[in-house]
Design a protein around this nucleic acid. Structure first.
Lengths: 256, 256
DNA sequence: CTTGCCATACTTGCATACTAGCATGCAAGA
DNA sequence: TCTTGCATGCTAGTATGCAAGTATGGCAAG
C-alpha cells in the first residue's frame, strides 16, 4: 500500500530540500510559525513524510537568512524578529536602491517610464484593503527598477535579506498606508522622467523608511514577537537625505 | 592505533562543518583550487578523514556564495569567476559603503579619525610587495568605517558577497597599486575630517572601482579562470560620481 | 518542603547505507 | 569505420543509525 505522500502537497519527484525550505520560509514570514516556537528536525520530517536530511538542510538555509536559530544539542527555534536586523536590512536595501535610482535618473532607459506608469495604474486600481496583493505589486515595481538599471543579478542577492523586513511587512499589513506608498511611487517616476537624481533618491529613501515608522507601534503591540537587545529601541541611524540643509546634527529620525 | 587524524590540521573537537567550509573557501579564493576543477564530496571527505555529511553542508554554503556549482548526479565544480557577478558584488559594496561614508561625514564619531590615521601609518609602513598583508589591513580599514557608522551587523551581511571580489583581488595581487590605494584611504579620512560627504563618497567610489580597472587585463591574461557570457566584457554600469557635471552620458568607465 | 542526584527522553552533529541519474568505454552489429 | 546499446563506475539526493550533549521529571536524602 502506498503510504500517504504527505500532509500538504509536496512533489516527491522534484528535489525535496528546496520545497521544504520554501514551505517553512513562508510559514515563518507569514507568522504562522510564531517566533520563539521550538521545532525539531524529526518533527518537521514526520510532518512532511520525509527523512531528517532534507529538513536539516532546509534548517541550515533558514538559519542563514536569520529565520531560525539552531542551538546545537538543544533545539531549533523560530527566531524572533531582531530589531537591529530589520534596521540593518532596511539600511542595506536603501543604499542599494538609492544607487539604482541614481543610475536610472542619469540616463533612463527607453520605455521604462511608460512601463512604470502602467504599473502605477494597476496599483491605483487596487482596493485600499488588499494589502497582500499590493506587497506583490510593490515588489515588482522595485524589481523593475533594479533590472532596468542592469542590476537584476544584484537584486537577487539582496532578496535574502528581505526576509526580516518581509516579516514586519506582513505584521503591518493592516495599517499599510497603501495610497501614500503609491503616491511615492508616482513621485519617483516623475523624478526619473525629469532626470532629477536628487529628488528621486530622496523620495525613495523616505519611501523605504515608511516601514520603519510603524515599527515602534507594532513592537509595542506585539512585543513578544521581537527581540530587543535591552528592551530598548535605539533610533535608526539613517543616511542623511540629499538636498536638505544639514539640520544641526543627524536629527533625521526619532523613535522611542 | 589511532588513525591519522587528517592531512592538514582540523580540530576534531570543534564542529567540523565550518572548518571544512573555511578551508575550502580559502583554497578557492586563493586559486589553489582552479575554476572548472571538479571535486566530489567523497574525495574531500577522505582527504580530511571525515564523512560526506559535513563536506556536503560545506558545499551547500559555498554554492550559496557562488564559489561552487553543484550539478545533481553529475558533479560539483569550482565556479569560474563570473564577470557579471564581480560587477554586481562591486556595485553592491560601493552602494553600501557610500551610504556608510555619508553617515560618517555628517557626524564623525569621536576618535574615529585618529583611529583611521593610525591605521594609515601601519599601511604606509608596509613594503610595496606585501600585497597579501595589505589586503588584510584594507579589510580592517573598511570594516572600521562600517562599525563606526553603527552598521557592523550590516557589514557581516555583505561579507558573503566579497567572495567573488576577493578572488579577483588575489589574482591582481602582483600589480596591486598599493600606494595609490593607501593615498585614497588618506583622502577619505581627510574628507571625513572636513565633514565633506560629497568628496568622501566620490573618493570611496573611485577607490572601490580600482579593482575593476585591472579586471580586463587580468581576464585577458587568464581567460580560462573566468566566465564571460558571450566572451564579451560589457563595460560596468556604474553609479554616476557625485559632484561632477553630468558628462554627456555615463561616460565614467570604458573597458573592453 | 526543599535540594541535589540521576535516569530518561529528547536534541542536533556526524557517519553510513541505499537509490537513482548520468558519463564513459567497450562491444556488437551495420 | 561508424553507430548503437549496455555494463560499469561514478555522482549527488535521501534515509537511517549512532554518538554526544542537554533539559526534564521523579526520587531520595536532608
Amino acid at each position: 500500500m502506498a503510504q500517504m505522500d504527505s500532509i500538504a502537497g509536496l512533489d516527491p519527484l522534484r528535489p525535496i530540500t528546496p520545497q521544504i525550505t520554501q514551505l517553512l520560509r513562508a510559514r515563518i514570514i507569514k507568522n504562522h510559525l510564531a517566533p520563539g516556537n521550538r521545532i525539531s528536525e524529526t518533527e518537521i520530517a514526520s510532518t512532511y513524510n520525509v527523512s531528517r536530511q532534507p529538513v536539516r538542510e532546509a534548517f541550515i538555509k533558514l538559519q542563514e537568512q536569520g529565520l531560525l536559530t539552531v542551538l546545537p544539542q538543544r533545539g531549533t527555534f523560530v527566531s524572533k524578529i531582531a530589531y537591529q536586523a530589520v534596521l540593518d536590512a532596511q539600511f542595506l536595501r536603501e543604499a542599494i536602491e538609492a544607487d539604482i535610482l541614481l543610475i536610472l535618473a542619469s540616463a533612463p532607459p527607453k520605455g521604462l517610464v511608460a512601463n512604470l506608469r502602467q504599473q502605477l495604474e494597476t496599483q491605483r486600481a487596487l482596493g485600499p484593503n488588499d494589502a497582500e496583493t499590493f506587497i506583490q505589486l510593490d515588489e515588482t515595481f522595485h524589481r523593475t527598477l533594479a533590472e532596468a538599471a542592469g542590476k537584476g543579478g544584484a537584486w537577487k542577492q539582496i532578496e535574502g535579506l528581505k526576509s526580516q523586513m518581509d516579516r514586519v511587512r506582513f505584521l503591518a499589513m493592516k495599517q499599510f498606508p497603501v495610497d501614500k506608498l503609491i503616491r511615492q511611487h508616482g513621485q519617483m517616476v516623475d523624478a526619473l522622467e525629469q532626470q532629477n537624481p536628487t529628488l528621486a533618491q530622496r523620495t525613495l529613501r523616505q519611501h523605504l523608511r515608511e516601514v520603519l515608522s510603524d515599527l515602534p507601534i507594532i513592537i509595542k503591540a506585539l512585543p513578544d514577537l521581537f527581540d530587543l537587545p535591552d528592551g530598548k529601541m535605539p533610533a535608526p541611524l539613517n543616511t542623511p537625505l540629499p538636498g536638505s540643509r544639514p539640520t544641526s546634527k543627524g536629527k533625521s529620525n526619532d523613535a522611542a
